[in-house]
């Protein structure tokens, strides 16, 4: 149960208006979600501008992953509004949101271990004729053609992330870091407008973290927008154009990485007083 309905954001929060030049690709306002009596996300808001890499940080238990789940509708918000690409999306099913062009990854990389790396990638392709039961039987040629095209696309993404040699291996045989890479590559395969990355650097060795970051930056240069939850501050500071800070389910601060680094409230939330 959430107590009184509309609370103003916390007084200390830096209320930055969206820079008017870049319209928000994703905007969420007044999001609330509680489990039992605990408000995991409490009146939170977040704006993700088109073409940016936006960071979301906060101490453990701040509600980052819950907020992520609310944005992608893997959890239903108790209250609040999520607008993606100009359309309200909170009434949609998770798969419909992915079809609209917002794809998420998971905190612990979820690859389909008993499928090959290539099959993992192909699963990402959208609007496949061959995903319709009857068309598999009656549109054989079209399905085969599409499959060939999708394989080419998947191969070129795999090549760019260096997983091409493993294309025919079981995804379960990949290392933890490679799984993260595969998961992001698979999200790219859906040709999304926005990718939500849940801790892309968690449990990944530093070399591979740098690689992952490089790929994110280069995809961003090609126009892809990202929202990144991450504990690794180096990653956040080097990647993000702007950062949102969440603490105890509420917005604590918002600004450029440099501003966040020197924000006393943020330091307090992380280190305690």
């Amino acid at each position: 149960m959430v107590d009184d309905s509309v609370k103003q954001p916390e007084s200390g929060m830096e209320q930055k208006e969206q820079s008017s030049s870049t319209p928000s690709l994703l905007s969420a306002e007044k999001l609330c979600k509680s489990f039992g009596g605990i408000a995991a996300v409490d009146n939170a808001q977040i704006f993700v501008p088109q073409g940016n890499i936006t960071g979301l940080i906060g101490p453990n238990g701040a509600g980052k992953t819950t907020l992520f789940n609310l944005l992608s509708n893997f959890l239903r918000p108790d209250k609040g509004q999520v607008i993606f690409d100009g359309e309200p999306i909170q009434h949609l099913q998770p798969h419909q949101i992915a079809q609209q062009g917002m794809v998420r990854t998971f905190q612990v990389a979820r690859v389909l271990s008993r499928l090959s790396v290539m099959e993992n990638m192909l699963l990402g392709a959208q609007k496949q004729t061959g995903e319709n039961l009857l068309r598999v039987w009656f549109r054989h040629r079209q399905v085969a053609q599409e499959e060939r095209r999708n394989k080419e696309q998947a191969m070129s993404i795999l090549e760019s992330v260096g997983l091409a040699p493993q294309a025919d291996e079981y995804a379960g045989a990949l290392s933890g870091g490679q799984r993260k890479l595969l998961e992001i590559a698979r999200a790219m395969m859906t040709r999304p407008k926005l990718i939500l990355l849940d801790e892309p650097a968690a449990g990944v060795n530093p070399t591979l973290v740098n690689q992952i970051c490089e790929h994110i930056v280069s995809w961003n240069r090609e126009g892809m927008s990202f929202l990144v939850v991450e504990h690794n501050m180096d990653v956040i500071m080097s990647l993000c154009h702007s950062v949102w800070v969440l603490a105890e389910g509420k917005n604590l601060a918002h600004g450029t990485p440099a501003e966040i680094q020197t924000n006393s409230q943020v330091l307090e939330a992380y280190l305690g007083n």
């Binding site: 893997f74 998770p94 979820r110 008993r114 699963l123 999200a187």
Partner: peptide
Amino acid sequence: SPWGRVLKAIREDEQVPLALG
């Protein structure tokens, strides 16, 4: 076929195909 691929993905971890639309 791609249809069967979705089924196998569901068998492995249904959150993944869900997140992929």
